[in-house]
Design a protein around this nucleic acid. Structure first.
Lengths: 222, 222
DNA sequence: AATTGCCTTTGATCTATATCAATACACGAT
DNA sequence: ATCGTGTATTGATATAGATCAAAGGCAATT
């Protein structure tokens, strides 16, 4: 795909840098090459909601709006590829498989978004934090990196702003998981999962198809 | 697009019917033709999170997983088109514009999901309910239907399970908006927006680019 | 090795929203 | 008209998590 890379601009940012400012024109699609970043949105009163964490390989910037309604901030030093939207669209006309690829990326993003919606809406603080550790462990494994002593690229306030909590509640939930023997914490950013099964029980609270209560209204196909 | 419709199976369901059961194999993509539906996910303890409401024309079923991790329930009598996933993929090979169309649909779904994430994570009950009314009004307008006396196709418990609240809190928030002269409610399912500007102020709490507090870590492009 | 400045943890209260409990309302069936 | 059933509202109380406040940890700087 030589033409694809001809389209890309490589960039590097230091930890803490704002890669994409909120409400800036959505004119490029970004692929994170290395490092970690966060996608967030600020409320008028300064409250922040993190919409997603970006791990190496993740894409950002696929929106239907003219402007991004969120910003991207580097958590660690990052390198990334920036594709101009217009160029990308032209390229897609020649390489239809690009469209498939983008579509697949989008469905995955949508699945994660739905997962987060469920967590934000219907999980307790403890469940949120447990499932968050589970999630980071999973992402690290998918990247071929150690998944058990979980290396956290973000700090407590980021976890809080992702899960709709405060730093204090995140901290308290972690100590609770520590005290109940589910986790160990050699360092704040390194979490050892001692009881994998229990972590799953606490955090992943979806109904099993079998055990599902039938509280729904009666189906009546016409 | 004759071949597209050859692929589709038309179906009709009565209000309350479960159109797609949770955890069933994700083998079709659905387009709602008429009526309203909801996409929801159940927790082990019976708590429900509604991920989206489906309005006429909306799509459902685009996921990267093998099974749907949520179910679809008809709110009113509905008619829909069901496309077999496999057939769709084959069709896309012949009609690349289908891929573009699906990609656009997905980016819009992702944008709405992010909107909901922000609401769930960082809005108060009152803000959630205000923005919800705003949202339904907007959706109705986009369908060429009256947007001011807002016709609600869902009941209080559905609003609650969408916004991460309880029925009681939804009801109390609505009466508060009624008492403060923002809304009027001829019937529970018909809401008149009296003070449009105020409803927006209460519900849509995103930071204006200009007034944005610079609380982010200092940018330092390398 | 002391100082400074973040983070994180822990503790003490407060409060928004949940929960529990009635009551009111609307509408179809009798 | 009256009853019955489901939905919505309102009221009283409880509680999970927020807020306020302080104290540890750790690493960089002097």
């Amino acid at each position: 795909m030589p033409r694809l890379f001809a389209l890309a601009i490589e960039e590097a940012y230091a930890a803490g840098a704002q890669v994409v400012p909120e409400e800036s024109p959505a004119k490029s699609v970004i692929n994170l090459r290395s490092g970690h970043a966060l996608v967030s949105r600020l409320a008028a009163d300064g409250k922040r909601q993190i919409l997603a964490f970006l791990f190496p390989g993740d894409f950002f910037g696929l929106t239907s709006e003219d402007n991004y309604h969120y910003s991207v901030t580097a958590l660690t030093d990052v390198t990334l590829c920036r594709f101009a939207r217009t160029g990308l669209e032209v390229l897609i006309l020649d390489f239809p498989m690009m469209d498939r690829r983008l579509r697949f990326l989008l469905t995955r993003l949508l699945d994660s978004a739905n997962e987060l919606i469920f967590s934000l809406g219907r999980k307790t603080a403890l469940q949120k934090v447990a499932s968050f550790i589970w999630y980071v462990s999973y992402r690290n494994r998918k990247l071929g990196q150690p998944d058990n002593p979980v290396q956290l690229p973000m700090q407590r306030s980021d976890i809080a702003d992702f899960m709709g909590l405060t730093v204090e509640t995140v901290s308290r939930s972690l100590t609770q998981l520590k005290r109940s023997g589910v986790l160990r914490m050699p360092r704040p950013d390194l979490i050892e999962i001692v009881d994998q099964a229990q972590l799953r029980v606490v955090g992943v609270v979806v109904a099993e198809p079998s055990s599902r209560r039938d509280t729904e209204r009666r189906p009546n196909k016409v």
